[in-house]
Structures are given as C-alpha cells and as structure tokens.
Design a protein around this nucleic acid. Sequence first.
DNA 1: ACCTGAACACCGTTCAAGT
DNA 2: ACCTGAACACCGTTCAAGT
Lengths: 209, 209
Amino acid sequence: MVRPRTPLLSRERIVEVATAIVDAEGLDALSTRRLARELGVQAPSLYNHFATKEEIVDAIGDAIVAGVDLSMLGRDPWPAALRGWARAYRAAFRAHPNVVPFLARGPARRPASLRLADAVYGALVSAGWPPAQATRIGAAMRYFVAGSALGSFALGFVADPSLYGADYPHLRDAHRLADRHSEVDEAAFELGLDALIDGLERRFAALHP
Amino acid sequence: MVRPRTPLLSRERIVEVATAIVDAEGLDALSTRRLARELGVQAPSLYNHFATKEEIVDAIGDAIVAGVDLSMLGRDPWPAALRGWARAYRAAFRAHPNVVPFLARGPARRPASLRLADAVYGALVSAGWPPAQATRIGAAMRYFVAGSALGSFALGFVADPSLYGADYPHLRDAHRLADRHSEVDEAAFELGLDALIDGLERRFAALHP
DNA sequence: ACCTGAACACCGTTCAAGT
DNA sequence: ACCTGAACACCGTTCAAGT
C-alpha cells in the first residue's frame, strides 16, 4: 500500500500507541519497528511524522506534562498553589511510571514544560516574591517533585530480611518498606512538601514584615 | 588470543573505561562493542565479568555513589549532617552529568546506595528522630537531591529571547538563565535545601519541646 | 577460567521508488 | 504528501571451541 488517500498515521495516533507500549512494557520495549507494527505500518513511515525516535519519546513526556492541572496557580494563595501543583505533577507521573526515565533526558524544551514553568513563576511573582527568588523557588520545587516522581524510595529495599541485618545495621527493618511502599513514599512526599513550603513561608514573612 | 595467563579484563577496569566513555560522549555512546574495543578485547569477553550491559551501567552508578562522603553523618548535628551530605551527593553527580539518567533506573539495590541509606537513617535516629519519621526524611531528602542532580533547571531555557516573549509572558527574561545556569541552579539548590531543613528543624523542635 | 569467531535476532535511520 | 522495500551500519547476547 502506498500513499492512501487518507493518511494512516498522525502524530497523535503515534504518541497514543507509543504511550500504551511504554506503559505496558517499559521504555526499552519501544522500538520503531514494534511501534510501526502496532500501528499497522512499516517503520520508515514514522519518519514522515517525527524526525527521530527521541522526538516521539519527547512527545510522550510532553503529553503527560500537558495533562498536569495548573489552575490552582492562578487562583490559590502561593503556598496552597505550590502544594496543589506539586501533587498534580507527581500524580501525573505516577500514572506513567515507565516514562519517568524520560524526566532525566535533560530539561524542558517542550511546550508543556514551558507552560508549566511560566505558570509557576508567574504565580510566585504575582504573589509578591522577587523575580530572582521566584526563579529559585520554581527550580527547587522542580527538583523535589521530579525527584519524587523518579522512583519509589521504599521499593529500593527488597522484601528479604536477611539482606540487610548484617551489613547495614540501621536497615534491619528496611525489608518491611517494600510492602508498604505506596504509603511510605506518599508520607515522605507530603512531609518534604510541608517542610519545604514551611521554610519558604518563613522566608516570605521575613520579606514582607 | 585466548585465555592469556593473566586476565586482560577485570570488573574494575571495565567500569573505569565505561565511565570514561559515558563522561566523554554520553550513555548512548556506551555499547558493548565500543567498550570492548577500547579495552582491546572482543565484545563477548565482557560477559565473563558482567551478566548484562545493564549491570555495567549499574556498576558505574554505584562507583559514583560510593565516592560520596558520608563522614559528616556520624559526626555533625543532624541539620548540618543532612546539608553536608546533600551537597556531597549533588557534587558527585555533577561531576558525571551523563550518568544522571541512570538515577532514573529504579531505586537502589546497589551496595553503595544501601550504605548511604543506612548512614542517613542511622544519623537521624541517633539524633532523636522517631524511626518512621527518619525513613520519611531520608526519602524526602533523596527526592530533592536526586531531582537537583537530574539536570539543570536553568539550562532548560534556550538562550534565544525570541522564543518566549510571545507564548509565555512570564518567561520574557528566561533566555538569560542559560548563561548563568550554574549560579542559578546552585542558588536554587541552596534555597531549597535551607527551606527543607528549616522546616524539618521546626518539626524536630515541636517533637522535643 | 577467560577469551574468540560466528551467529541470531534485533536496532534507528536513509533513500529511491511508488502513487 | 505519505507509505513502501531494501539496505546500511549498527546493537546485546549466546555458544561452541580453544587453551
């Protein structure tokens, strides 16, 4: 088949099927041939819509970031806005854990990430933070939230008691973390978020006495 | 050449050369054939020392984590200890920026990471934090530090003024960030670290009135 | 135990050819 | 404009054969 009168592919459909593959089997399972097969097409056809495979992965990540709710940033007081945004961002990536390695692919040249940075920075400046501080806060929040999306802390510990006792005395009970990893990660995220915003509020208060 | 009387390879030498390749040209440049060539050997020889290429990458990351100074954790008061450890961890990964994607490869089953977790947790518990809180603090710190190592925030913005003004009103001056990315990232890291530890100190004070 | 050559089943990408 | 088949230059890994 060549040049059908209505195109077989579109960027949207490619990203959709690619996301499904990555969600189901991980980033490594995404190859151009595999993706093409599931799209009912040959691999080189993809290059009519994306210049490289990397662009496809970027588009997957961008679509996820684009789904992050930003409405609180133009509405709530800045501490609540930061909190709500951080939770939304983390939730978006927890829904696609296999895409997280993409977060490490260097920073954001992608439109959704820029929109997000714009909204966070704008909210902080509107709230009364000096621009230089707003930049730093946006970056610091990104560090924390991206790091928390990066992967489970608790899941790093294997559910095997014999592994730790001997070599790592303080980790004697760490094997229990694996079972409760969701709660542990959730509680750690909330504690860190609270502490971080708490510290920022103190600085804000010192700035506006 | 077969089976030389003294082995051509060792895990140490493989990791050393692999790290050099990744540092110089990035993770994608590391292939078993390329690595073998630089080691003066054929690719299958590597499989006498590592079961998979992934194990080699793990070993690169583990060696970097193993280089992180942990001495302050058994010595300084916990806020200073956390601060010092966070800086050391970040510095270690900034020295090998191309290895950072490895951070996203799921959590730590690697010895150096376990030793690190053990030291951080132990220091917090010794200082008087309840164990459950110590776990959360260790996780929250890992989120922040790993996120900050993940990549420059400032470098995400291209040094081209025309890119932002129109679509992202608040980012009008963001193109200036790229030039000063080191200072911006450094200042953001220090601000976040201060705020985070500040917030934790307040919780600690409430716990030990 | 440790290295080799040959082989297997893949990759991402290019490109001329088709309509 | 958009899809194809053929091809290029790669991959990671296995395995029997060598000493």
